[in-house]
Nucleic acid binder design. Structure first.
Lengths: 196, 196, 196, 196
DNA sequence: TATGAATGAGCCTTCATTCAT
DNA sequence: GATGAATGAAGGCTCATTCAT
């Protein structure tokens, strides 16, 4: 348990293997081979095969949300923050296609993730989006009566589906490039009503 | 393969079992017991366990899209169609919580479903949404330069996430009630730009 | 679970395999092969590998004690009963050397047997011996102040060690033949004191 | 192999661990932790895990038999020697309950111990008992035609079962106190026949 | 000598699928 | 068609043992 690098190596190896074969089709021994260690060694760092996936998700998600949080902090207002958020969300996935594959396709496995251990990490992302929207409302950039929770889920859902479609379409185009269009549609959707 | 009802019974039993235990934790014998038949009998109607899930998804999805298509046909314009679509999407899930659980949580499992056999059925839903959006553009209700494919994915993603959150939140509120708010945000988002 | 013969076959196969290789060195697949069935089939009849051993012990012990109980019922008095009991105890083991090997050597494995599930069956044997000794005391054939519990353990221990030594000595002589000598020493030991 | 104390420490640690969890449920690392050393260090003193158990048994048995031999040497005749032997056998176990647990329950495991390496040590105990009985015959205290080998096994078996029952009964009474009764029954059993 | 991280052989058990009835 | 007992491949995990430090 000494070497935290070893733990990290296993996670990275798991990302590659899961991206290639899917979680259920991946053997613990596949991950070990990919990481260049013996199968038994995995169990010095992770309790079970599931533990690898859960940890992978938590780590990556925490990193993801952390990066986003830091990046949008500099933006002057909520509108700019949303634009930045969308583009970054896309860019980070595009920059790491194997992770994108795992996050968008493999990590949706049933009860195990959305419920249970990983829900905290998803909650953190929702909280981040929500706070930006609240800020926009306070700044008068978004509708005063905006149902923030609903809008939060809509934005996340929209980005998530964009990413999933991109992954399933074998990444045959630039996801990041579509960021501005996504941001604009959403921003107009939550803007002060034109008739108001 | 004589009795198509028998095939249907198995699908319905599978929905209940998958909703309760998840796909990977469900045994073929569990489904058989739920359907009141012997395990071996399942193989007279389905080639493999996966086949049950794929068929379940296809059947339900085709039914889902078919219902939506019919329901929105009567609506006078694209705006009304979107409103109807969103509310119906939500209502159908809310009316069948076990199916909702399976569709939103269990049916996201890995490569098997997003890719491969079931992608056609999802494609049909995307095509339906896309045609409504095209219609709105043609009718001058939506932006002329609307990136329809992107907007399609955004609307689907938004609805899908709304549904998933509702399922994961143990369905503690009315999903259908949030339909109008979702529709309005989206519709404003794709409407003719206020500044135009 | 239908065929009780199948269950019995597995037990008998297990006796042979355990006698040959010992419990911990025996694989479930060894037992299956010996029984002429697939390894998985074992699990239709027994919950775990341990369950095989426990059931084996219980069955054989119950059979053993049952036979003894019936056989000594005919004897006219406690002295004759003890003589019969010792000889039969030895004869039954001698007639089934593989079972003897398992019972005397393999079945002594730690906590699992003496404590826990199988203690009842051993208790039944102790009760049988004890009742014979009580009878002998009541009939005036044994010391009036005989500590029956102690004498019971002594007789069982003496027979058990005779059997174990015989098994470990590769059964190079007749165990049954030593029965009378064992019975006489014990009977004299518990008889009315000579000086009394 | 420098430090014989270290070797002894490991044996003592093993006794405690085996008494607590049983041999097969004890990990080499458990013994190391109990001994306050690293797991690898054990292999500087013992070849295998089995070797620990075998050595433990040999050491303790040699000590046991040695003590008994010395203690009974002073006794004036075979009768006194048997009385002393029984009580001491019981007392030594009662004075070291953890060792008793291991010897009576754990050390009976399969082929490994009864046969092979440890049989010598048991043989030494049998020889000691046998010599006392021979002496008794020679002194005219026991039957002239006493089958000494049989009587030896019977006495050992009786004591052994007394001890086992006491251990399994959670040591809820004094084993040593039952020594005299055991000795008397045995002694009467091997005494000159009353009718002779 | 001591360490303890790493190894990897080994096995029990599960369960989708088959097939004789 | 229906059954369900039987199959047997497959894999996660343990842990005694090694060896570089």
């Amino acid at each position: 348990m000494r070497d935290p690098d070893r733990s990290q190596n296993i996670i990275e190896a798991a990302v590659r293997v899961f991206a290639r074969k899917g979680y259920y089709n991946s053997r613990v021994s596949d991950i070990a081979r990919e990481a260049g260690i013996a199968a038994g060694t995995i169990y010095l760092y992770f309790k079970t095969k599931d533990d690898i996936l859960v940890t992978l998700f938590r780590d990556k998600m925490a990193e993801f949300v952390g990066s986003l949080r830091k990046a949008i902090a500099d933006e002057p207002d909520a509108v700019a923050k949303v634009r930045r958020l969308v583009v970054l969300h896309f860019r980070m996935l595009e920059d790491d296609p194997e992770l994108a594959e795992v996050v968008q396709v493999e990590l949706r496995q049933g009860q195990k993730f959305f419920r249970g251990a990983s829900s905290q990490e998803i909650g953190a992302y929702f909280a981040l989006i929500g706070s930006v929207l609240e800020e926009g409302v306070a700044q008068g950039r978004f509708r005063q009566d905006l149902p923030v929770k609903i809008a939060t889920k809509m934005l996340f859902g929209a980005m998530d589906q964009m990413a999933t479609s991109w992954v399933l379409g074998k990444r045959g185009y630039s996801l990041t490039d579509s960021g501005p269009a996504v941001a604009e549609i959403f921003l107009q959707g939550v803007a002060m009503s034109p008739g108001a």
